[in-house]
C-alpha cells in the first residue's frame, strides 16, 4: 500500500510542486488548502506524513501540528514545516508543538526529496 503524505498550503503552486515531486517517489499525496481543511481530512483518514505551511488563513501551521499530534494515529508521524528565512522563531515554536523538522522556502524539488527521505527512510 502506498504511504500517504499530506501537503498543506494556501498556494496551489506549492501544493502542486510537492505533489508532483513526491508522487514520483511513490507516495500518495493528499492536498489541503489550510489547517482546518487538513485537520478535517486527517481525522477522516490518517496520513503517514505531513508537510505544512505556517502562515495560512484558517488554522495556522503551528496550531495544526498541535492538533495533529493529538490524533492517536498521528502521534509519531513526521511533520515538516515550510518556513521562510525570516521565521527563525517559528521553527522553534513548531518544534515545540511537535514538528519533526522544516524546509526553508523557496526550496527546490531535490531539497524536498532529501528531507522526505530523511524522515521517512
Amino acid at each position: 500500500m502506498k504511504k500517504t503524505i499530506m501537503t498543506v498550503d494556501d498556494s496551489a503552486s506549492v501544493r502542486l510542486m510537492v505533489k508532483f515531486t513526491l508522487a514520483e517517489l511513490g507516495f500518495e499525496i493528499i492536498e489541503a488548502v489550510d489547517g482546518r481543511d487538513a485537520l478535517r481530512k486527517i481525522e477522516k483518514k490518517p496520513v503517514h506524513m505531513l508537510i505544512t505551511d505556517i502562515n495560512m488563513p484558517e488554522l495556522d501551521g503551528i496550531s495544526l501540528v498541535k492538533k495533529v499530534r493529538e490524533i492517536p494515529a498521528c502521534k509519531f508521524i513526521p511533520i515538516i514545516m515550510l518556513t521562510t528565512e525570516s521565521q527563525e522563531e517559528k521553527k522553534r515554536e513548531g518544534k515545540k508543538a511537535g514538528a519533526t523538522g522544516w524546509i526553508v522556502k523557496p526550496f527546490r524539488p531535490d531539497q524536498l526529496v532529501a528531507v522526505v527521505r530523511k524522515v521517512m527512510g
Partner: peptide, 14 residues
Amino acid sequence: IFATGTNPALLLRE
C-alpha cells in the same frame, strides 16, 4: 524524541 515524529534509527542509518 518520538513525539516529534523522529525515528532515531533513520538518523543512524543516514
